[in-house]
Nucleic acid binder design. Sequence first.
RNA 1: GGUCCCAUCGUCUAGCGGUCUAGGACGCCGGCCUCUCACGCCGGUAACACGGGUUCGAGUCCCGUUGGGACUACCA
Length: 470
Amino acid sequence: MNTKQVVTRFPPSPTGTLHIGGARTALFNWLFARHYHGKFVLRIEDTDKLRSTRDNTDSIIESLRWLGLDWDEGPYFQSQRMEIYNEMIEELLSSGNAYYCHCKPEELERKKAEAKKRGLKPKYDGRCRELGLGKAPGAVVRLKSPLSGTTTFKDLVKGVISIDNEELDDLILQRSDGSFTYNFAVVVDDSKMGINYVIRGDDHVNNTPRQILIYKALGEPIPLYAHLPMILGPDKTPLSKRHGATSVMAYKEMGFLPHALLNSLARLGWSHGDQEKFTTQELIDLFSLDHVGKSAGIFNMEKLLDLNAKYIREVDDSNLADLLIPFLNNLGCSGLNRKKVKEAVKTLKARAKTLLEMAQGALFYFKEITYEKQADEKFLRPEVLEILEDLLSDLERTTGFAQEELEKTFSTFLERHQIKLGKVAQPLRVALTGKTVSPGIFEIMEVMGQEMVIKRLSNAISHTKSKKGP
RNA sequence: GGUCCCAUCGUCUAGCGGUCUAGGACGCCGGCCUCUCACGCCGGUAACACGGGUUCGAGUCCCGUUGGGACUACCA
């Protein structure tokens, strides 16, 4: 039995915000670590000084927190680990597993182009490999990798993958400006941090043999790998900024619940029979790499929307009100009465797929309304004036504004006029909300309260009267 | 070009040689419910890329074809 603790990691590069693909990678690493009661490490790969920003780092961290993906160690910053990389370079140099190369970039470029033209592999020719060159301005450090043989690893999702070492050339570990390359830094960090499961995007499979070679040169144990399939946009190309909303924070702003996103991400590439909905605990208990699919998938917005709607319905009214208030504020509603928001939420929760949508649907409770043109023309007609006026006087007279009481008031009203509810419901709805679509009229009347209902109804009546003309 | 990876309904997927005339979910289309819209409920639509093997038997294993994708940087 292997008693070694599982250690996974998520190493975002702060050259952008956390996007859907990154979030899924983080989630799988997190789930795997939690499932095995292991450790989840966060490491910021900010070696690209030009493109890495503090804002992006903060935003990535905020996104992870929002999703509820907590880490046990870190965040580490690669930019603060230069001494370690340097030490490792020295070690490789002295063990003969790496060497200085003095070749000029332009020269290499030229050779590469030439090789390509002749249909050969554009790889480094190993000119400086055995020269025993020393440090010099413009020199880089290269890995002395095996010329023959194959490098094989058993990917936990893809199976055995092997590649001839001939395909790999002596890759650069340290650049001429002293900085370190990605493949090198990753291996050093993963190794130093004790990462034993590397779960990452599919786009790294080709890097894996190179990294394994570095582990071997370092004499360090090689982790187990699991490569996750890519997430594609609707056009079947890898998800990118072009696809609009790809950043996790954008989903927050659109009114998605973090758990809905999480659930949705989990189901993209992983499955557990026919189950679609999972609590976080179920995800942790059930997650395993052998039910991760091998093929790339398209991120399905419709399904996320549906899941989000389902989860919204599960949140209790009071919490939902708290979640909704910021969205309402953004839409210009201030000084909100929390209790009224809660009552409003009750009427809206089955009708909104996102918090934003719900806030928009709740606006008529909290802001002055305007009549939608179509609604106005179709339902606020002089023919219904008489009925509306009579209804208004009934509503003014009644003392009960709870739903059941309103229903009673209405049934006697309808009986007196010998009409069906359908006849008054739509005009009344337009009068109260300005729209033809809303929650049930009794529900909204109760939430609005007598005063507002009477005011809106009389406004609608005078508005309709004004249409008659002289 | 080379190397590597991938291939079930429109989409996410179940399927780990027989239970598959291929199941679930989203979407879409009907219906019921009904004061509108939703919710809910009921029903329907729709897929194993192709061709060879292996086997008594293949969606499931092997090979090839085709089609996607990744990598091929002194980016990560």
